Simulated scan of single mutants.
Amino acid sequence: MITIQQEFFGIFEKELVTEMEQVAVIKKFMAGEVIIDIGQYIKFMPLLLDGVIKIIREDKNEGELLLYFLEKGDTCAMSIACCVGAKKSEIRAIADVDTTVAMIPNQYLDGWMGKYKSWRNFILESYSNRLNEMLTTVDNIAFSQMDVRIMNYLKEKATISQSQSIDVTHQIIATDLNTSRVVVSRILKSLENQGKILLQRNNIRLL
């Protein structure tokens, strides 16, 4: 199992890594398992040691929209805000694949900001990266047609998994992009006819 030392050595000060290893709770989540839910008070900040987490926003009609993915070495800026402000979560974090997370208790976050430069830079960079990803999501919704959004989604999944072969169902894509399975299936078939993808059972290969 990957450790905090393995993932963050050279990124954080040695003293900070030691503190993290002393206070963090390491948890494993199976693919599809909810890590943080909407309306939940967050007592720990997640540091992703292995796997992929997708961050989802839910509207009043319980429709879901994928905001961004977290990869190994990332944390969720939105959960940090809830941790520091003692607010209820407005997002749902779900393990996209089997995932290992270091859960850092809230009471250490603020102190580390003043004590460790690397931690402060990490948090600020995380905010910046997540903001840019959410702006990309907004741009896709506002300005891109669904076929472009689906291709961008598949390319991001391929980048994260480091494979052109993506294990995903039409329904999962529809849920993540807040559209219908019928629309997704029609567009995927069109993309296949254009020679951009190859459709297989519960798998899509980028060409």
Rank of each mutant, 00 (worst) to 15 (best):
K155E: 14
D98P: 07
I197M: 09
E71V: 11
S185Q: 01
E15Y: 03
E156D: 11
R201W: 12
K189S: 15
G111R: 10
G73L: 00
I80P: 01
N178E: 01
M45G: 00
L124I: 10
Q164A: 15
T3H: 08
L48M: 03
T179Y: 00
I166P: 01
M103P: 06
M146G: 00
V97F: 05
E33F: 13
L16E: 03
E133C: 05
K43F: 14
A158T: 03
L131T: 12
S161L: 12
T175Q: 03
K60D: 15
Q171S: 14
I36M: 08
D50M: 09
A77W: 02
Y41E: 08
D50F: 09
A81K: 10
M151I: 05
A24W: 01
E156F: 04
D37M: 07
N152D: 08
Y68S: 05
H170M: 11
L207A: 10
V52F: 07
E19I: 04
T159Q: 13
S89T: 06
G85Y: 01
W112P: 04
W119I: 05
D147A: 01
I53N: 06
I123N: 02
L191C: 02
I172L: 13
P105E: 11
I187T: 06
G114S: 08
G39E: 07
T3P: 08
I80A: 02
L47G: 10
G111V: 11
N202I: 11
Q5K: 14
N152L: 06
F9T: 14
P105C: 12
R181K: 12
C83E: 07
K117N: 10
N178G: 01
I56D: 07
V17Y: 08
N193F: 12
L131W: 14
D96T: 07
D147I: 00
D37F: 06
I53H: 07
A77T: 02
Q145G: 09
T179R: 00
S161A: 11
E21Q: 13
M30S: 15
S165K: 12
T99L: 10
T175D: 07
V17I: 15
W119K: 05
V97W: 03
G114W: 06
V97T: 13
I160N: 13
I36H: 09
R201V: 12
N140S: 14
R205W: 00
R92F: 03
I141C: 09
Q5E: 08
D74K: 06
T3G: 09
K157Y: 05
Y116S: 02
K157D: 01
L206C: 06
N61M: 12
M113S: 10
T136R: 10
G51F: 13
G73D: 00
R57G: 11
R57L: 11
S163R: 02
D96C: 07
S144G: 04
L199P: 04
L131P: 04
Y116N: 02
K54H: 14
K27M: 04
L16S: 03
R205C: 03
I56W: 07
I166V: 11
A24V: 05
I35E: 09
L131E: 15
S165W: 02
